[in-house]
Amino acid sequence: MAPGRLSGDLQRGDIVVFDGRGSFVDDALPTPLQKIGSWVGLGPRDVYYVKRVIAVGGDSLECCDAEGRLLLNGKPLNEDYAPTPASAVEFSIEVPEGTMWVMGDNRNDSADSRSLLGRPGGGFIPTDRIIGPVIGHGSSID
């Protein structure tokens, strides 16, 4: 898989829906039967999150430069949807292969990968937890 690409055609800047169990939620990952049950309304359903993919496996990400922008692989990100600074939480991370770093667009009021720094998993979301992309949002990270 090419750098910056997730499974399928997902890439940095895409907005994705993912199952937060094992990362955002401490619950164990569902069994295949529990997963099917959740599709038809049986069992817990409030484990899905919608966030923007900021970095993928192999990327480095840092907050923030002198202008308040995130630095992806040492280069500033142009995120016209994000506040300035792009994060009130300073961090410097390397994204492990098979994971992604996600952030909400409403950065000042978003539980996202930054909220999980220092916890098991370190804020990295396994890419196999992606349910799918949000269609029609119209922006990606250059």
Rank of each mutant, 00 (worst) to 15 (best):
S139F: 15
R5K: 13
R69I: 14
D112L: 05
P76T: 10
R12Q: 13
L71I: 07
N108D: 10
K35H: 06
L116C: 03
V50Q: 04
A111Y: 02
M103A: 11
A82M: 07
P126K: 05
F91K: 07
L61G: 03
Y48V: 07
D105K: 02
I130A: 06
S110L: 08
N106F: 13
L70V: 05
S92G: 15
R5W: 11
K51W: 01
V40I: 11
G20M: 04
F124V: 00
E67Y: 15
A55W: 06
E79S: 13
D9G: 15
E62T: 12
M103W: 07
P83H: 00
D59Q: 14
L117R: 08
C64M: 15
N106W: 08
V17Y: 04
I135M: 09
G132L: 10
D27P: 01
G104I: 02
P126N: 01
R119K: 10
D80H: 10
E67I: 13
G22T: 00
A86R: 08
G122H: 11
Y48A: 09
V95N: 06
P120C: 00
R119A: 07
G13K: 15
R5M: 12
N108A: 12
A111I: 03
G37Y: 05
D19L: 02
G132E: 04
S140I: 06
R12C: 13
V47W: 02
Y81G: 02
G74L: 14
R12P: 08
G118F: 12
I141C: 13
L42Y: 12
I93N: 03
G37Q: 10
Y49D: 02
R52H: 14
P96H: 10
S110G: 04
D112T: 05
P44G: 06
M100W: 07
K51Y: 03
S23T: 00
G57A: 12
I125A: 01
G57T: 09
G58M: 12
V25E: 00
G74C: 15
F24R: 02
C64R: 13
L42T: 06
E94L: 13
V40F: 10
A55F: 04
L71V: 08
I54A: 05
D59S: 15
K75L: 15
P32K: 03
E67K: 15
G13W: 14
R114N: 04
S110P: 03
S7M: 13
S23F: 00
G4W: 11
